[in-house]
């Protein structure tokens, strides 16, 4: 079984639209939406949820104000400016300390050092994840709670569950919709994957971000392909992006033209290749054939 991760570096380059089309073209793949922070794939593939589970990425501190003697030790040891002296009073003190759950890093140092045992340190509810069916096959996806931490761990979880589904159903491919950037969720979505496709655009920003994301995949030793979306927006820059990719050891696997159908398909809740045949849809099919060709050459086992 192989894992293909679609990334963009810069957001908004058409990554999710491409994943939806790949799902339609692959026919027998498991989908994993690892853009858990702002998941959009479900808007097109319309999953029917079969199983729903809570996700806890760590614990969080809470001062039990009834037990607080306002000694201030928690405030002293907290490195994350998460402790405030504005909690409700109790019989002994007029004001107590309070932990801001959004600023809390979940390190538990305050709870450890609280001599009164007045700080509760319990697993936080950070989100929810789903196993679903779509018209293209099974899908694992998630929703990280708003303003929550540890998206990387939720990404790891979604990937692991998608692999389990693939194994159980004897499907060979997991297609992963990654998140923008190069930080924790992105690293969690690519570590140990078989192939990365970077979707970029012919802009100076796209060029800059491709460089950073390609360095990241190189750092983790993962084979990487690139395709330029909306290439005709600036043909000169499209060529420059592809040239830069070559220098970085990243092969170009096709170009996709600028086409309103991309947005129209999204509005119609369809994958581009379901909605249209010509234009960008034809280009996407071309890109998919390049990607699946590369996947088939990777051999049955990934080289670690």
């Amino acid at each position: 079984m192989k894992e293909l991760v679609v990334l963009s570096g810069k957001g908004g380059t058409g990554k999710t639209s491409l994943v939806a089309s790949f799902a339609a073209l692959a026919g027998d793949a498991v989908l994993a939406d690892c853009d858990v922070d702002a998941a959009d794939l479900h808007l097109v593939v319309e999953p029917k949820i079969i199983r729903r589970s809570r996700f806890s990425g760590g614990s969080r501190a809470r001062v039990m104000s009834g037990h607080c003697i306002a000694c201030g030790k928690c405030d002293e040891v907290c490195r994350f400016d998460a402790v405030f002296y504005d909690g409700p009073g109790n019989g002994r003190v007029a004001k107590t300390f309070r932990v801001d759950p959004i600023a809390c890093e979940g390190c538990g140092v305050c709870a450890w050092f609280c001599a009164e045992g007045a700080i509760e340190f319990a697993p936080a509810d950070n989100g929810v994840w789903f196993v679903s069916e779509t018209r293209f096959g099974p899908m694992v996806h998630a929703k990280l709670g708003i303003a929550e931490e540890n998206s990387g761990k939720l990404v790891s979880l979604v990937r692991a569950e998608a692999k389990k589904v693939a194994e159980a159903r004897k499907l060979d491919l997991v297609i992963i919709d990654g998140s923008p950037g190069i930080g924790c969720p992105v690293i969690a979505s690519i570590a140990g994957a078989d192939l990365v496709l970077v979707v970029t655009e012919p802009t100076l920003s796209g060029l800059h971000d491709l460089g950073r994301v390609a360095e990241l995949t190189k750092h983790f030793g993962i084979q990487t392909l690139v395709c330029v979306n909306k290439w005709d927006l600036n043909a000169e820059l499209a060529a420059e992006v592809e040239g830069r990719a070559r220098q970085l050891g990243v092969e170009t696997v096709g170009r996709i033209c600028y086409d309103q159908a991309m947005t129209e398909a999204q509005i119609n809740r369809q994958a581009l290749v379901e909605y249209a045949n010509a234009g960008a849809a034809a280009d996407v099919k071309e890109v998919w054939s390049g990607v699946s060709d590369r996947l088939s050459k990777l051999g049955p086992f990934a080289i670690l």
Partner: peptide, 9 residues
């Protein structure tokens, strides 16, 4: 050496 990639997180 390790024979699989870590989950990283």
């Amino acid at each position: 050496r390790a024979n699989v990639e870590g989950h990283w997180m």
